[in-house]
Design a protein around this nucleic acid. Structure first.
Lengths: 156, 156
DNA sequence: AAGTTTTTTTCGAATTTCGTAAAAAAAGGA
DNA sequence: TCCTTTTTTTACGAAATTCGAAAAAAACTT
């Protein structure tokens, strides 16, 4: 996989704003032909650099309760637990971490009841979970994949 | 905003797989006309139910270091701190939570150095941050917005 | 049930995407 | 540096998709 150049990053930046903007429009904005945009996007997709998706608003879908749950797992069962957790559609993020918790997950629910059910009836059934620290989301300030930057100016 | 019906959810489910699938194709799959798909997607977008975006792979962008940072803020400065944090492009998630940490953020960096710089030189400059618990991501198992379900079967 | 509003379908025109060949540019080798 | 090879970009006609708007159908109201 070749390193991304400036044009690739510009394409990604434009698509971050609107994932359905026509190639002709991107081409116009960047001053190249549609074919170039098409060829590059095809390559980026093949290389797995990005995917076209949609970002639903959980609130608008009735998922009013969101939580981050820090888990401690029994030594040796972490991977299996992570895989089990990943199967739930309510769970949108699962990662293994250094620090206090072995696994940290992020999940969405319709109600507090559903969250409770998840913790008490689903998590408890998964072999290898020692403890679960639930943090309830009170307000979301940012949630985006817009971290493509022109040139490595991540910290501004 | 009207409640989403079955067709709306089916549209979202299809778009979750491929955010750039043609309306004609969705129409074909659901057995309705292209115009219906177009009208519904236009309405869903206007209602803010979802957005067309792209999901870049941080690794492929050279962002090899990801972290979740739990923050404790001084009473009264939480909102300001959250807003400041949201300004960083490296920060992809900022939320206010109940539990051990007032704010939890998720961020991506090119290197450990960049992470250290972020914590020591950027976070420390933000007025109102009392402490920061950094958890380094070792492995990602799931990261998706695919939580649109047919009918409230979030827990399976 | 008649009238009103909303949603869906239809269809021609405009636009976009696609396939592909040729040209141009870039990269590599002697 | 010049030549060859490879990669990328451009060009362009054909196919497919999107768009606008009017007609039809469906859903609500009273």
């Amino acid at each position: 996989m070749k390193k991304l150049d400036h044009v690739d990053k510009q394409i990604l930046q434009i698509l971050q704003e609107d994932g359905r903007i026509p190639y002709t429009e991107i081409a116009h904005q960047l001053g190249v032909s549609e074919g170039t945009i098409r060829a590059r996007i095809t390559r980026l997709l093949q290389d797995g650099v990005f995917q076209f998706i949609i970002h639903p608003d959980p609130e608008k879908l009735g998922l009013h309760v969101q939580a981050i749950i820090g888990l401690t797992t029994r030594l040796g069962s972490q991977i299996k637990v992570a895989e089990e957790l990943s199967k739930f559609s309510a769970v949108r993020f699962v990662g293994s971490f250094s620090g206090k918790h072995d696994l940290i997950i992020q999940a969405c629910f319709h109600s507090n009841d559903e969250l409770i059910t998840f913790v008490n009836e689903r998590l408890s059934q998964i072999e290898g979970i020692v403890s679960a620290d639930v943090s309830l989301e009170l307000k979301q300030y940012k949630d985006s994949f817009s971290f493509v930057q022109d040139d490595d100016v991540t910290l501004q």
